[in-house]
Structure formats: structure tokens, C-alpha cells
Simulated assay, not measured.
Amino acid sequence: MKQQVIDYELASPGAQELLTSSRLAHLAYVGKDDTPKVIPVGFFWTGAQVVISTATTSPKVTALSARPDVAVSIDAGDSPDQARTLSIRGRASVEIVEGLTGEYLAGAGKIMDTEALAAFERNSRNMYDQMARIAISPSWVRYYDFGAGRLPHFLQKLADQNSP
């Protein structure tokens, strides 16, 4: 049942748009110092996981290796009627790979033309001997579209109670 809800939420056209066209997400995790952190990250959606590629020396690599529970938020819209968000909770796995991750280049390809991507890849290969591949498997997902009336349950209940 739980996987059906996750699949349903992820299959929403709005959720798919956020997953495949957004440049940034916000990653929430507990840091090495036991305090919560929320940071912007580039990401790539594989169809099953949110993948974040980063330097092996990034503080989040150490923190997520010890405490893999995370939340991810992908947001869009500049006004209340355009506001949309995809909220994901899950567990992160960290793998150190040689060179660049495929998802790193695929994510960059969402926003760069062929020439810019080729230059980006050359520069990145010179910079990274290894990368950390952080793969987040969703265990809970909700897609909200405030303008379309797809609200969090508590807001929908409040709206229903106060509608004429």
C-alpha cells in the first residue's frame, strides 16, 4: 500500500515536471555536529532515486554515511497560485566512484547545450578523480499544487471547514 502511494505521488505530471526539469532541490539532513542542515543541491532523477553527486570531501558525505535519513524538497512558482512542491523523505546511500558519476553529467545536461556540456565535462574530469554518489530512495512522497487546490491534508481540512 505504501509503495502505491509513493508511485501515485511520483507519477503526477506536476511531480514529474519538478523531478525532470528543476535545477535545484533542498536537501535536509542531520550534520556531524547533530544539528539540522538544509542545503541547495543539484540533482538528477533516475526514475527511482534522487541522485546528488558531490566531492568526496563534502561534509554531507560524512554526515549521510552516519545518518542516512533525509528529506528533499523541490519547489517552483513565484506566486501563491503557481506554488508547487514535491516533498520526499527517504534514506541516502553513499558510494564513492572513480571519476564523474553519470548523473552529474546528466543533471548538467538539463541546463546546458552540447558545447557548454562538453566544456563542463572536460573541466569536471580535470577536477574530480572521484565523486560521492548520494542516492536517495523515497520512502514517503507528497506532491502539492497550491494553485490547483492540491494542498497538505491539514490545509485542505481547514479550507473545507471554512468554505461557505
Rank of each mutant, 00 (worst) to 15 (best):
Q82E: 12
D81K: 13
G47R: 09
R89Q: 10
I52E: 00
S93Y: 02
G31R: 12
Y8S: 15
R84H: 13
A63Q: 09
G107R: 00
A118K: 15
G107A: 09
A76V: 09
I6A: 11
P68A: 15
T54S: 14
Q49P: 06
S93D: 06
L27E: 05
R84I: 01
V72G: 00
Y104Q: 08
E17I: 06
D34W: 08
I96H: 13
Y144D: 07
T56P: 06
P36G: 11
V97L: 06
R142E: 15
I96L: 15
T46Y: 01
A106Q: 13
A71E: 05
E115A: 14
L64Q: 04
L27Q: 07
P40F: 09
N123G: 10
K110C: 10
K32N: 07
N123D: 10
A11H: 08
V30I: 06
S22A: 15
G31T: 10
A116P: 09
G14R: 08
W45H: 09
G107I: 00
E103R: 08
Y143C: 00
E121S: 14
Q130Y: 11
Y8K: 15
S58T: 07
K32M: 09
P80D: 07
I111C: 04
I74A: 03
D145H: 06
G99M: 05
A71C: 11
S87P: 02
I6Y: 06
F120C: 12
L64S: 03
V97K: 14
G102F: 02
G31M: 02
S58I: 05
L117M: 11
W140G: 04
W45L: 03
D34P: 02
S137Q: 11
A76M: 08
R91P: 00
V51E: 00
S12E: 14
R133Y: 01
Y104M: 06
P68G: 14
S53T: 14
L64C: 04
I136P: 00
A25K: 02
T57N: 06
